[in-house]
Design a protein around this nucleic acid. Structure first.
Length: 812
DNA sequence: ACAGGCCTGGTTTTT
DNA sequence: CCAGGCCTGT
């Protein structure tokens, strides 16, 4: 058994797995098998050490990582040990989900509503705006977003509202908002994401009895991505491990890229200070990339001052060259990427799914999408609109949440007039004000308006107003509503009260269905449009998620469901099945790997980002980001920058990124810039031609090369609407020729056409058939070094430029 | 209630 | 340039 678990591990990994007692810090380079080590260690603890499953806690940052770990542990153990996040078995989960569970179980000691709801950023912002209104502060002057970030920062540092030290006027405002916000959240029975961590940590800090219970239970702690912990998380882990010190932390300072949300890679150092007897294990062997790629990564990260020196090694050999390419502008950059991908695919050196294009900011995806769509290359864009952020989903969840926790005013306000029930803004505002006066939640207020003095909403409400406990009422108090408003409010209340009464007897799916039907939401949503049907389909998807909870005990299923949807993002179930090019930011690429990686936008002020230029610490983070990006690549790496780029509607010349300078001198890195190509085979080589995006102007032509000189681009094209499936070229519309006719002669950046001895397969006027676009007519065809580039106009699908070796074009 | 015009601000993101 | 918020007018 032990052999099984240790088989295939290298000596360092093996040591990490088997060093069971005491604090262990594993510094794990990218691709060094850290997930493997974590899973094997859990299996080892259970199987060889004989630890009971309930004594083991493994903490990750993302659901995806937690899921992977569960799966791998399950595989190692042959599924014989119950792997669950439940109380009985192993605890494997994210910081947030584990904390949510602890707070649910310890609602009493933690002073929380056991039915608390979790607010996401949007709902949090609503609560902050409420706080600003209560404090009569101007939203324009004190941006809610700024307040949110100040409050979040305080919480990450475990600073309570009453401990908040304001050193500036702004901070004083933030302090007051923080205080008021906390009151509002408590009245609503709501916690934000930061609260989950800080409240748990405060609970353990302040209640020794609770702390000891958890310390006694969890003999073995494992923490992934330790460099991403913030102060609250670090403290939480420290507390939990306080008794046994059997704390196993895996991290890599060099991959810390989340400082902006409170992560502090120095926690890795602090680990060694706080646990001086800790054993440090380095995992430097990389199983992912070629040596050339690792050399580039090492060259980047070696310039950071604050790090434990490490050097990645592989036994994969040098591998292929790393390509540095200079493009003319963002369109040329995108065209270069797409062509390179098509070339690799046509030669079967890679599949579309092997290829990833990474960029610093989301806005950069646009030109890439344009190029992919234009050339009919399927792709997926990671990080688009998320399922749980969609309006219909948020509405449905707000209904469910309100039924679960009627104190939740934010959810009430979201749904009270959706669909329209003649309860306008003024009525809602009056209800909010009057309910607060009465010391009840808004649902409590509705109960009073409806004359229902026995409503549970009147007794369960935590209040922040004068009356701390709700007095027994003999008669409903006078309310400010006119007869019509009263009628609407009462009708809404009766409906809601019925759902609340029925909730325990129904499955979540049934409750959801009942709510969407009786509220009129379903009818309202399905307005006959295609969009309405899409949204309805999304609701059905939510319902099928809810159905997973049918078998839970009745009193738990709604709680469990709401918790899951609050803490899970569909990023986690990021489908990898289809063969498409992946577009994603470097941040979202962390933890992933691809055989072929393109890093685009390698220009000063783009990457490294302009906001990081002044601050050496932020510049180090940019460097780590570049390091993460490079180390995603297994076999092929392309580093691309553009000579000029349009940002915020302004086109400017950008200097190549310093990161390129760091990498360029290395052996195995080839700088095949377009300008070099131009010099070697001459600017006069070819005349115009309509397939834009891949040519350079001559120097003397630069002045004329203004946006207006190359016609309109994509200004009429709106982005394809998001759907449940990633976009493909199939639904795209074509655009016109991007370059204005008759403009000056240009050189091609592409390799020169193959010499004489080849004949094009296609010529202008040929009728062809394409699997995706149907029939079309060839406009022109040109040979390139290794393929033939055919421009075809398709009926109703516009004009596409395709590679004959890649697209399945057939003459008809 | 909603369309349309004006203004503003625009890293990175999980939970 | 362009998305999202806010205001105004129907």
């Amino acid at each position: 058994m032990q052999e099984d678990i240790l088989a295939g591990l290298n000596p360092a990994q093996r040591e990490a797995v088997t060093t069971v007692k005491g604090p262990v810090l594993v510094l794990a380079g990218p691709g060094s098998g850290k997930t493997r080590v974590l899973a094997h260690r859990v299996a080892y603890l259970l199987r060889v050490v004989g630890a009971p499953p309930r004594a083991v806690m493994a903490v990750t940052f993302t659901n995806k990582a937690a899921g992977e770990m569960k799966e791998r542990v399950g595989r190692l153990l042959g599924e014989s040990v119950p792997v669950s996040t439940g109380w009985k078995g192993l605890t494997i989960g994210t910081f947030h989900s584990i904390c949510a569970r602890i707070l649910r179980a310890e609602a009493g000691p933690a002073g929380l509503n056991p039915n608390y709801v979790i607010y996401d950023d949007g709902e949090q912002l609503m609560a902050i705006k409420q706080a600003l209104r209560d404090l009569k502060l101007d939203e324009k002057l004190y941006r809610p977003e700024a307040m949110r970030s100040a409050i979040s920062k305080a919480k990450n540092e475990l600073v309570k509202p009453e401990q908040f030290q304001a050193g500036t006027y702004f901070e004083e405002v933030a302090r007051r908002v923080y205080v008021r916000y906390t009151e509002i959240m408590s009245a609503n029975g709501a916690l934000d994401f930061d609260d989950l961590l800080t409240r748990t940590t405060w609970l353990l800090q302040e209640q020794p009895e609770v702390l000891h219970r958890y310390q006694d239970r969890y003999e073995f702690l494992l923490v992934d991505e330790f460099q991403d912990t913030n102060t609250a998380q670090f403290e939480l882990v420290r507390l939990l491990a306080g008794k046994t010190h059997n704390l196993f932390a895996v991290g890599d300072e060099d991959q810390s890229i989340y400082a902006f949300r409170g992560a502090d890679y120095r926690n890795v150092m602090r680990f060694r200070e706080d646990f001086p007897d800790s054993k440090v294990i380095l995992l430097e062997h990389n199983y992912r990339s070629t040596q050339t790629i690792l050399d580039a990564a090492n060259a980047i990260i070696a310039k950071n001052r604050h790090r434990t020196p490490k050097k990645l090694r592989t036994d994969r050999g040098q591998g292929l060259q790393v390509t540095v390419h200079e493009a003319y502008d963002e369109a040329d950059e995108a065209a270069f990427v797409v062509k390179a991908i098509q070339r690799l695919v046509s030669t079967r050196e890679a599949s579309l799914g092997d290829c990833a294009v990474m960029y610093r900011t989301n806005a950069q995806s646009r030109s890439l999408e344009d190029a992919l769509v234009a050339r009919g290359v399927p792709y997926r864009l990671v990080g688009g609109t998320r399922f749980y952020q969609r309006r219909e989903i948020k509405d449905a969840l707000a209904y469910l949440r309100l039924v679960h926790n009627p104190a939740d005013n934010i959810s009430l306000m979201r749904v009270i007039n959706v669909p329209a029930r003649s309860i306008g803004d003024k009525t809602v505002a009056a209800l909010a004000a009057w309910s607060a006066e009465q010391g009840v939640s808004m649902v409590g207020g509705l109960a009073l308006v409806a004359g229902d003095l026995t409503s549970p909403a009147l007794s369960e409400t935590e209040t922040f107003a004068a009356s701390a406990t709700s007095p027994q009422r003999a008669a409903p108090p006078q309310h400010p509503f006119a007869a019509a408003a009263q009628r609407s409010l009462t009708a809404f209340y009766r409906m809601l009260a019925k759902w609340i009464a029925a909730k325990d007897g129904l499955t979540v799916a049934a409750l959801l269905e009942r709510i969407t039907e009786e509220s009129g939401y379903a009818t309202w949503l399905r307005d006959g449009t295609e969009e309405g049907e899409d949204r309805w389909a999304n609701l059905q998807e939510l319902r099928s998620v809810a159905a997973h909870y049918d078998d839970f005990p009745p009193e738990l299923r709604l709680t469990a469901f709401l918790e899951e949807v609050a803490l899970v993002s569909d990023q986690d179930e990021l489908a990898e099945e289809s063969d498409r090019v992946t577009l994603l930011t470097i941040h979202t690429a962390k933890g992933l790997e691809f055989p072929v990686v393109f890093i685009v936008g390698l220009e000063e002020n783009i990457f490294p980002h302009s906001r990081s230029m002044e601050d050496p610490d932020q510049m180090e983070e940019e460097r780590r980001l570049m390091y993460v990006a490079i180390t995603r690549a297994k076999d092929r790496l392309y580093l691309i920058h553009a000579f000029r780029r349009m940002i915020y509607g302004r086109t400017e010349v950008y200097e190549a990124s310093r990161f390129l300078r760091d990498v360029k001198g290395l052996s195995g890195v080839s700088s095949a810039t377009s300008s070099g190509a131009r010099q070697s085979w001459g600017a006069e080589e070819r005349g115009g031609g309509a397939s834009g995006g891949d040519r350079w102007p001559r120097r003397d032509e630069e002045a004329a090369w203004t946006p207006s000189s190359h016609g309109t681009r994509r200004d009429t094209e709106s982005r394809a609407p998001f759907g449940k499936t990633p976009r493909t070229a199939a639904g795209s519309t074509a655009r016109g020729t991007p370059w204005s006719p008759g403009s000056i002669d240009r050189a091609k950046a592409d390799p020169p056409p193959a010499r004489g001895d080849r004949q094009p397969q296609f010529k202008p006027g040929d009728r062809v058939d394409h699997g995706l676009f149907g029939q079309g007519i060839v406009l022109k065809s040109e040979l390139t070094t290794d393929d033939e580039e055919v421009t075809v106009t398709f009926a109703g699908k516009g004009t596409k430029t395709l590679l004959a070796g890649f697209a399945k074009l057939r003459k008809v």
